[in-house]
């Protein structure tokens, strides 16, 4: 006969096994063969490095990467994407970066709405230089300060408003890390799909 503690452990084990199977393994199998949606491409090179920087700096704590379908929230109306997110948008995501907090806007479609490298560099260097009142942290360690030579500022100098500029005779240029982060953001693009995305909002 099973002793009481053995029964207890067995029951507890069964409970967790069931939910793990249903919530983790079944979706894994259900989505194993899913096709990437059009426009979803596997990142490579600098884009991969950029994704690692996104993880390292914890952008995920303020930015989601999941657009809610029309009718649930105002994501599409805000211009955060042309449609709700689909599982196929994430086939190359490991680890996933869906996020659950929107201190800042959703970024799953940032490449469509803000392609300007100059804007992003100024924003990374100090978000308040382009978005007054923003609470996004500055990332100056993704940049170098260089002296402006006789030939003028380097071609890749970040255009900054005077109160954020480093001072006379100096310029801010992106490092490879800032460029990689930008390259990664430019992979975040949602394209409309033929069949309208089934709205997860309708119950």
């Amino acid at each position: 006969m099973l002793t009481r503690p053995a029964l207890l452990f067995l029951g507890a084990f069964a409970a967790i096994l069931m939910s793990y199977t249903a919530l983790s393994l079944v979706p894994k199998m259900q989505l194993a063969t899913i096709e990437p949606t059009p426009g979803t491409e596997q990142p490579f090179g600098a884009q991969v490095q950029g994704r690692e920087i996104y993880i390292r700096e914890g952008c995920v704590y303020c930015h989601t990467q999941q657009v809610r379908a029309p009718g649930y929230g105002a994501d599409v109306e805000r211009g955060w994407g042309p449609r709700g997110s689909l599982p196929g948008d994430y086939v190359y995501d490991s680890p996933h970066l869906l996020g659950t907090m929107r201190t800042g806007p959703d970024l799953r479609d940032i490449a469509s709405r803000q392609p300007s490298a100059d804007w992003h560099y100024a924003h990374f260097y100090n978000p308040r230089s382009v978005s007054p009142g923003s609470v996004m942290p500055p990332y100056p360690w993704l940049f170098r300060t260089v002296e402006v030579g006789p030939g003028g500022a380097p071609g890749n100098a970040v255009p900054l408003p005077p109160e954020f500029a480093p001072g006379d005779g100096l310029a801010i240029v992106p490092t490879g890390e800032a460029e990689a982060l930008y390259a990664y953001l430019m992979t975040l693009k949602l394209e409309p799909v033929e069949a309208p995305a089934p709205s997860p909002a309708t119950e």
Binding site: F13, I16, P87
Partner: peptide, 25 residues
Amino acid sequence: GACMLWTPILLVAVLLPIYSGVPHA
């Protein structure tokens, strides 16, 4: 007693390097 069993299982299950995309979430 039950949580002594659950907690290591939880940690090991989430750390398995077998997930990506939506199932990872």
